[in-house]
Simulated scan of single mutants.
Amino acid sequence: MRMLRLATPALLGAAGLAILDLAAGPVAAKPTATTPVPATPAPTLPGTQTFGAPNKTLPGAASLPPAPSKDPNADLAYGAYQRGFYVTAFKEATKRLETNKTDFPAMTLLAELYSQGLGVRQDPARAAEWYRLAANLGDPHAAATLGMMQIEGRGVPKDQAAGRALLEKAAARADATASYNLALILLGTGAPADLTRAVDLLRQAAHQELAPAQHALGVLYLQGRGTAKDPTKAAEWFRRAADNGDLPGEVEYSILLFNGEGVAKDEARAARYFRHAAFRGNAVAQNRVARLYASGRGVQKNLVEAAAWDMAARAQGLSDAWLTQAVSGLNAEEKARAERLAADRAGP
């Protein structure tokens, strides 16, 4: 399941550019379009690439809800799914439905298997059928997923109104991803009432520890959009998003930490967050870490590290003339070390 994602102002605006005032003409960060977050992640099959799945499911979303029964024997299907035994999960879910025609967790599990092509041939249309059956029996997770499928026209005819109605239904039952998706749809309208409700929905999802919602809520507090501008609350939500693994939130929090906006200024701590995000492949963080090493802010000055991180960022299209000048004095051996470090950080 896909969603919209909010553009991050600190990466695009003044806060992001203020990260290192020692550089003449600081580098504007590349826009980071906030990508949709699925309601269910696609477990990576051996030899496959999750990002290449036909439905483009991204990681970082809530997992399938656990089966409601406290009897461990009733959770064999979900247990198999979580361990990657998808054929077994399919068989167990089917077996459960043979004895209980209203077992909506089993229906949702079958829908997910068909949606991702796990243990069965991928079939979005059949996935949508199972999601619909589960949604009609009251499963908010299924309603949320089916709603986004209708908005996208995946497996079912595209129907924005019907998809949004399903999101409303799921959000009313406190489904975090539905609340988040619906909030971002409302933010796109620009109407004041919709903005206020969008903030409320994001708070609901954020308090359920949905990291992208925490990041989005931080963006709105930083912008003062739909709510009073509050850098302190923005920093807190960015921190929680970062601690929950949200990469844009981690970069945002690093920027606020470095600038002392909404949180006590702490260059060394900011550098640790930047480095963590840089090692996760974020080009903006790689560029900022390079600048930190080049200037000795928050870390010990190290021009080889600066050059290596600059190379990593450049490989992703983020160039920086100031850094080029800052590391221009490296000798051949130092440049070779930087190149080896950059290659290692580029990953496989």
Rank of each mutant, 00 (worst) to 15 (best):
L4N: 00
R5K: 05
A7R: 05
T8Q: 14
A15P: 00
L20K: 00
D21I: 00
A23L: 04
A24F: 03
P26R: 08
A29F: 02
K30D: 07
K30H: 04
K30P: 02
T32F: 06
T34N: 09
P36W: 10
V37G: 01
P38N: 13
A39E: 08
P43T: 09
T44W: 00
L45V: 14
Q49I: 05
F51I: 05
N55L: 13
P59N: 13
P59F: 12
G60Y: 11
A62E: 02
S63R: 09
L64F: 06
L64P: 02
S69R: 03
S69F: 06
R83F: 00
G84N: 13
G84F: 11
F85A: 15
V87R: 14
A93N: 09
E98I: 07
E98N: 13
T102P: 04
M107F: 10
A111V: 15
L118F: 01
A127W: 03
E129V: 11
L133I: 00
N136K: 14
H141W: 10
H141P: 01
A142S: 11
L146Y: 09
G147D: 05
M148I: 02
Q150S: 12
I151M: 13
G153E: 12
G155D: 04
V156D: 06
R164I: 15
A165W: 04
A165K: 12
L166G: 06
L167Y: 01
L167P: 03
A170V: 13
A172N: 04
A178K: 12
S179N: 11
L184E: 07
L187N: 05
G188D: 12
A191L: 15
P192M: 14
T196W: 00
D200G: 14
L201T: 10
L202W: 04
Q208R: 14
E209C: 01
P212Y: 11
Q214Y: 10
H215E: 07
A216T: 14
L217T: 05
L222K: 02
Q223M: 10
R225A: 07
G226S: 05
K233C: 01
A234P: 04
A235L: 14
A235W: 11
E236Q: 15
R240M: 07
A241T: 12
G245N: 03
G245C: 03
E250S: 14
E252Y: 00
V263C: 08
V263P: 03
A264E: 15
A264D: 14
K265N: 01
A268F: 03
A270K: 03
A271V: 07
R272I: 05
Y273R: 00
H276Y: 02
N282L: 02
N282R: 06
A283D: 15
R291S: 12
V304P: 06
A307F: 05
L323W: 01
T324R: 13
Q325Y: 05
A326W: 05
S328T: 08
L330G: 04
L330V: 02
N331G: 11
A332S: 11
E334K: 03
K335I: 09
A336N: 10
A336M: 07
E339I: 06
L341E: 08
A343N: 08
